[in-house]
């Protein structure tokens, strides 16, 4: 069975979803990184202040 080619609207919606997905992945990575820095600072207080 042949699939119909994607409509232009589908491509646009895919682009929107992809953009949002990447933003969310980036946000998760950022929160993870912040958590590591904050937790590290508890055990190594000097680590939080970068010289």
């Amino acid at each position: 069975m042949a699939f119909k080619p994607d409509h232009e609207l589908h491509k646009r919606r895919f682009g929107r979803n992809l953009g949002l997905g990447l933003v969310l992945i980036g946000f998760v990575a950022l929160v993870y990184g912040i958590t590591v820095v904050k937790v590290s600072a508890i055990y190594h207080p000097a680590a939080e202040a970068a010289e």
Binding site: L30, G33, I34, V37, A41, A47, E48, A49, A50, E51
Partner: peptide
């Protein structure tokens, strides 16, 4: 005059 961890600085600016 106070140092900030680069990742905290990046996140804050963001």
């Amino acid at each position: 005059p106070v140092g900030v961890h680069p990742l905290i600085a990046f996140a804050s600016i963001l």
